[in-house]
C-alpha cells in the first residue's frame, strides 16, 4: 500500500495550464465583480494562454495525464478524473443554486413579474420549448457517443459526437436569435428601460440566469469540438473512452440546469 501511495505521488501531473485557466477565472470574474477592467483584460489574456498552452501541448503529444487510475477509500474504483469532474459539477450546482436563489429573491420582491399565460409575455415559449427538446436530444446523442466510445465503435462515436456538437450549436444559436428579438422588439433589457420599465427585475434575472447557462453550454461546445476534431483525425489515446465520458458528464449537467431554468423563467409567473 505504501508503495502504491509513493507511486501515486510520483506520477501526479504537473501541467501548468489548469492553474493558468483557474487564475484566468479568478482575475476575470474578480474584475467583472469589482468593475476593475484591467483585471478582466488580464483574465482574458490568461485564458488565451491557458487554453492555447493546453492545445499546443496536446498537438505535440505531451501528456500530463494522471496515471493514478483510481481512488481508494471512500471512492473505491472510481477514476480520479471522473471523480474530479463530479466534484466540479457539485461546485457548479452551488453556483447555479446561488444564481437561481437570487432570481427567486428578486421575483418575490419585484413590483411586477410577467405572467407566461398573458398575451404581452415577452419571451417566446413555443420556440424555447423546441430549443429545450434540442438540448435534451443532445444529451441523448452524447450518451450514445459515450456508449460507443466504451464499446470501441469508432464510427458511431464520431457520428454521435458530431450530432451533439451540431445540436448544442443549434441551441446556442436559437438562444442568441431570441436574445436579439426580445432585446430589440420586446424591449426586454437586463436593466430598467423607459419603454417597459416594469420589466427591469425580470430582465435582470432572465439575462443573468440564461446568460450564465448559455456561457456554460458554449464552454461545453469547445470541449465537444476538441473531442470531435481529434476523433475525426483518427487520433486515439489510451483513456479516450473515459475522456468522452467526462466531457459527457459536463454536457448532461448543463442539460439538467436548463431542465430547471426553462420552467423557472418561461413557465412560472407570480
Amino acid at each position: 500500500m505504501a508503495e502504491a501511495h509513493a507511486e501515486a505521488h510520483e506520477v501526479h501531473h504537473r501541467s501548468i495550464w489548469p492553474l493558468t485557466v483557474a487564475l484566468a477565472g479568478g482575475f476575470g470574474f474578480g474584475g467583472l465583480a469589482t468593475q476593475m477592467w484591467p483585471l478582466v483584460v488580464i483574465g482574458i489574456v490568461l485564458l488565451g494562454v491557458g487554453v492555447g498552452g493546453f492545445l499546443w501541448q496536446d498537438a505535440r503529444g505531451i501528456s500530463f495525464a494522471v496515471k493514478q487510475a483510481a481512488e481508494e477509500k471512500p471512492f473505491v474504483g472510481i477514476s480520479v478524473r471522473k471523480l474530479g469532474m463530479w466534484i466540479f459539477i457539485v461546485s457548479e450546482i452551488f453556483f447555479f443554486t446561488g444564481l437561481i436563489g437570487a432570481g427567486l429573491a428578486l421575483r418575490v420582491r419585484a413590483p411586477f413579474w410577467p405572467n407566461p399565460a398573458s398575451s404581452d409575455f415577452p419571451l417566446n415559449v413555443p420556440l424555447t420549448a423546441v430549443n429545450t427538446f434540442i438540448l435534451i436530444a443532445s444529451s441523448f446523442t452524447m450518451a450514445e457517443a459515450v456508449h460507443a466510445a466504451h464499446l470501441g465503435k469508432e464510427k458511431h462515436m464520431k457520428v454521435f459526437l458530431l450530432a451533439t456538437l451540431i445540436l448544442g450549436t443549434t441551441f446556442v444559436s436559437i438562444q442568441a436569435i431570441e436574445y436579439f428579438k426580445i432585446f430589440l422588439e420586446e424591449n426586454l433589457t437586463p436593466w430598467p428601460n423607459p419603454i417597459r420599465p416594469e420589466l427591469g427585475s425580470f430582465g435582470s434575472a432572465f439575462y443573468t440566469q440564461t446568460g450564465f447557462h448559455g456561457a456554460h453550454v458554449t464552454g461545453g461546445l469547445f470541449g465537444l469540438a476538441f473531442l470531435s476534431v481529434k476523433a475525426l483525425r483518427g487520433r486515439a489515446w489510451p483513456s479516450r473512452a473515459e475522456t468522452v465520458e467526462i466531457v459527457g458528464l459536463y454536457w448532461h449537467f448543463v442539460d439538467v440546469v436548463w431542465i430547471f431554468l426553462f420552467p423557472i423563467m418561461y413557465l412560472i409567473g407570480r
Binding site: A4, Q68, A69, A70, E71, V76, G77, I78, H150, E245
Partner: peptide, 16 residues
C-alpha cells in the same frame, strides 16, 4: 495495484 483493474472492470461493465 488493484485499482486499475477495478476501473477496467467498471468500463467493461458500462460497455456490456
Amino acid at each position: 495495484m488493484a485499482a486499475p483493474t477495478t476501473v477496467a472492470h467498471g468500463t467493461e461493465r458500462i460497455a456490456q
